[in-house]
Design a protein around this nucleic acid. Structure first.
Lengths: 229, 229
DNA sequence: ACGAAATCTGAACGGATGTTCAGTTATTGA
DNA sequence: TCAATAACTGAACATCCGTTCAGATTTCGT
């Protein structure tokens, strides 16, 4: 056989650990979750974890890395499609939510955790930037094609990602609200904000401390050095 | 005099500490920030912190508590106003962003931190629920008055709060992007999503795994037991 | 069945962290 | 000026956490 049984069992055990760790990270947070708890959740002794991962950092790294891979793969697929910007964006939003809400080992995709070593963090930030830039370009294309209203694509991208990622903070898999319905409603709302509205969304100024004209609407934003979603 | 000088100095020092702690929490995260770092940032010895706060938990608690007080006060003021739902919502969004981005000691308002003791966490969750409910009712009123399109107010509220709170993850006070322009752009985008769009925001189904009708649009959500924004 | 390799475990180590405490310095009120 | 109170500090304590390691147990190939 191509891959030996012990190899297959090894990677399966790794995946089990990642799932258990993701579950714990999600509910308790990274810093609040100890290796002993991860081990208990994965039915292992704490010491045995180190046969599968170099340490706690690496566990979180692979959680985030695999989630980002799936997100980027879906994004690229959507970008290559022939549908309009609206449908593309809808597909990305719903997939992102299902990825973050359904697949528990990927639900740690939003954790910042600057306590993870630099060389790992750099790789994650690079992937995250790539995802964010792809989404931004998708929105910018929709603006150019006049499907979307003229706004700052970078800021809208971050608003969307912030809304999507923070769902893990309140969503309960067993709750009354399904991931599907969250995805449907979020997609409708977040996309509608990009389509020109009937009524003017920017009425007469209220006059309260916001007197400076919003002239920096399309200010360029450095894509590098972005720390977080 | 009404308040003695030593009392005034005491509360002033407390505020200095809260500001310094908020600054550190914001950049490093709660678990990653030690009491020794807070003390250094506030120009105090670590031991001296305990003359002003019972411990690290209480420092975070007062950071979040004061920020929530300001947010709730502004929300109530907006709700009592006579403007339309659009202007009310705009005022709340911009104030929320300025509170979270400008006033550094309040920028910890988004931290979950389940490591803080129960009796403190309960008080914070109560205030957070009150804020969220107020915002939700504001949006629901806009829907009733036909200013906003018919959607699930609870989910839109959480999308908005998620977008707003996650700005602290990437916003840099010294960066090229001002808090004002973030507030303007976010408000425009997030409000436009509540106004009926010209083009249909929900086109023909793509057919991909989202075949279940979105019938649970107005499903009630338990307002208690909400853990996070 | 048997030696070898993989898998697993309990116990301990080193370091960091929140916190305390005895003791020192600064400030207050008269 | 002087006692009393507030403000502050360095050093240590207790605990927790990530990690390691020697050795036991299971699984594998033959």
């Amino acid at each position: 056989m191509r891959t030996s049984r012990i190899q297959r069992r090894y990677v399966a055990r790794r995946l089990e650990i990642l799932r258990a760790a993701g579950r714990e990270f999600r509910t308790r947070g990274f810093a609040e979750t100890g290796m002993r708890e991860i081990a208990a959740a994965a039915d292992l002794s704490p010491a045995n974890l180190y046969n599968y991962f170099r340490g706690k950092d690496e566990i979180l790294f692979f959680c985030q890395d695999s989630a980002l891979d799936r997100l980027i793969a879906n994004l690229d697929k959507a970008r290559r499609g022939k549908m309009g910007a609206t449908e593309k964006l809808r597909s990305v939003i719903t997939f992102h939510l299902h990825c973050v809400l359904d697949e528990v080992e990927g639900s740690a995709a939003h954790l910042l955790t600057n306590s993870i070593p630099h060389h790992l963090q750099k790789r994650l930030l690079a992937k995250r930037d790539r995802y964010e830039q792809g989404l931004r370009q998708m929105i910018a294309a929709g603006i150019r094609s006049a499907e979307f209203v003229a706004t700052d694509p970078a800021l809208v991208t971050r608003a969307i990602l912030g809304a999507l990622n923070s769902t893990v903070l309140w969503f309960h898999p067993q709750g009354a609200l399904s991931a599907d319905s969250v995805a449907e409603n979020f997609a409708s709302y977040l996309i509608r904000g990009l389509c020109s509205s009937r009524a003017s969304a920017r009425p007469a100024r209220t006059g309260r401390s916001l007197d400076r004209p919003a002239a920096n609407l399309r200010k360029k934003i450095a894509s590098k050095g972005v720390q977080q979603w």
